[in-house]
Write a protein that binds this DNA or RNA. Structure first.
Length: 202
DNA sequence: TATAGGATAGGCT
DNA sequence: GCCTATCCTATAG
């Protein structure tokens, strides 16, 4: 596997473009000696400091957001609603607080492991459908915050698959509970008609 | 220190 | 469709 995404990819300045480019890339994790992974089919871009939806809005620096300011190519993970772990890909250069949330993958590797972690045995399309579900299926938690994506714990590859603009939908991000332009800005990208995309398909 | 609320998912009406 | 578990984080006092 020599087709890991490079630092050049992660250091791109435009996180919205990166989120779009991530569709079709493969995401893998190796946790407890078990490899799981699949094709990214849904992402969202978070562009601090101007993005009100970002944890780094207004350049907010806290212990939690610290990882978002690292140079691109590491994981930013945090817990949402006390229950769900979220996996983000940090992008841009050091000091930029940009990140792309991975919301859903189409599982292709380690299906049995994912079924067991999720305790779902009769509906594979639900295994990684949504950011919390995906992290659980792949064995990821906020313990993996800061993981270097060039390593062998979490990594992304280009397997030659890409989706054309005709196959991709852009819409408002999920869970934006505030008012203003960033509530509805179309920074959520997903593969049209793909069964593994999470709920709100609008 | 105390407390309100969140980039969700699953179960129930 | 509506409801809420669950606990960490951020912010205020």
């Amino acid at each position: 596997m020599n087709n890991k995404l490079s630092l050049d990819f992660y250091s791109q300045a435009d996180v919205v473009s990166v989120a779009r480019q991530l569709l079709g890339k493969h995401l893998y994790s190796k946790i407890g000696g078990k490899i799981t992974g699949g094709i990214i089919v849904e992402t969202e871009a978070y562009r601090g400091p101007d993005d009100r939806g970002s944890h780094a809005y207004m350049d907010k620096k806290t212990p939690r957001t610290e990882m978002m300011y690292q140079a691109g190519g590491v994981a930013y993970m945090y817990i949402c609603y006390g229950i769900h772990d979220m996996l983000n890909i940090v992008t841009g250069t050091e000091g930029m607080s940009h990140a792309a949330l991975i919301r859903a993958i189409e599982p292709i590797e380690g299906l049995d492991v994912m079924r067991n972690r999720r305790a779902i045995f009769d509906d594979d399309k639900r295994l990684c459908q949504g950011p919390g579900a995906l992290a659980k299926a792949m064995g990821l938690s906020k313990l993996h915050n800061g993981t270097d994506l060039q390593g062998d714990t979490i990594w992304l590859t280009d397997e030659g698959l890409s989706y054309s603009d005709l196959e991709v939908m852009a819409g408002a991000r999920v869970g934006m509970n505030f008012e203003g332009p960033y509530k509805t800005i179309p920074w959520r990208f997903y593969v049209k008609g793909n069964a593994h995309v999470s709920r709100p398909r609008i």
